[in-house]
Design a protein around this nucleic acid. Sequence first.
DNA 1: GCGGAATCACCCAATTTGCGTGATTCCGCA
DNA 2: TGCGGAATCACGCAAATTGGGTGATTCCGC
Lengths: 209, 209
Amino acid sequence: MSINSLIRIVIVEDDKLIREGFSLLISSTYGYRVVGSYASCEEALRQLEEDQPEVVLMDIELPGMGGIACIEKIKKARPGTNVIVVSVYDQPGLVFEALCAGAGGYLTKNMQPARLLEAIRDIQEGGAPMSTSIARMVVQSFQKNRNSPLTARETEVLEHLARGKSYSSIASELFIDKETVRTHIKNIYFKLEVHSKAEAIEKALRVTS
Amino acid sequence: MSINSLIRIVIVEDDKLIREGFSLLISSTYGYRVVGSYASCEEALRQLEEDQPEVVLMDIELPGMGGIACIEKIKKARPGTNVIVVSVYDQPGLVFEALCAGAGGYLTKNMQPARLLEAIRDIQEGGAPMSTSIARMVVQSFQKNRNSPLTARETEVLEHLARGKSYSSIASELFIDKETVRTHIKNIYFKLEVHSKAEAIEKALRVTS
DNA sequence: GCGGAATCACCCAATTTGCGTGATTCCGCA
DNA sequence: TGCGGAATCACGCAAATTGGGTGATTCCGC
């Protein structure tokens, strides 16, 4: 981006008041330019090529096509476009779906308006603006179940299992016998009250969140 | 936390200058109190029970015990303690290890000093303070391989495979025949140039990062 | 109408998995 | 000093899973 180029921004938001509020805020700031402002995903996508936005501010809860699907389409059509979700919802499921779909940031609507401009700058510089409550969700998704009933070794075995490894592979990677792996897995199943690989993995992942 | 209680903070940082700088900054701010300041993990752990910190500011690159191991021990001994990593390194590996070990925030040392106080407040309020560059890493770890050679259906099958499901389970969950699942998986293996479940999962996960 | 995507079918051999029922060693803690 | 948990290894057995091969059909978009 050259120094004196404007950042081209598109807003997708069905609430007229919010949409115009954002638009006004951004447009009145030097260096930013709102090139499109739409109430639906469909409209935004139709104009996407023409608008050539660098950043899209996207509401998730939209009539018609949902915001998640829209993010996917935008990233597919113009992979370089940065999408920042601006949502009232902070349900984990929605957040992860949005991030997986390609959103590069996630803000909740109760933010300070100035945070919006900061977020746009952040994402253009390679950052990932997130409300701290959202960040916590994301971070927690990494944290292993600290109160696991499993021992360290069992957890280790389970991790390998979750990566699709067979008993034999796990054995050789941990330098133990296949039989030992089998014993660990029996104990894991017993402790987690499950009876198969898939159940164990699911339970292990789920306890985390 | 009662309104007029101080937030108890411990600093673990081997650079004396930085340590004392942080300490001074925090101590001179109303509502915050540095109850311990150590150059090594070992010292910090020894004093942990006595210090009873609510927040630990932790350097990662430390002599002796590494910061990652230290985070684990802290979270094990006092699960309620919030650990914020303050590091010069922003290598993905280190970041993920720290988060998995239980860190609730991750800042790089080139931040504004005031950001430190904000981060401590954030984490006490249930947020997850992160430098935006770190946040980007974390976010990217969620984003699926958008340029996958796999079709949508194949990706879907692979996702189920990664969750430890058997061909049969996948079939019934996708309302298709087991044979169809097998065909998809054969195609997946061919496209990814792999010959087993584990390899496919590994490759699928790795392309992302 | 060609090709890709998605669907289904059958054969085969090797491996994997889940379960039961054991044993041994080592280590920490009471 | 002994108990229990953790980690290690062993054997048998039946069912299920897996990977590979070689097909076919339908549907849709370009």
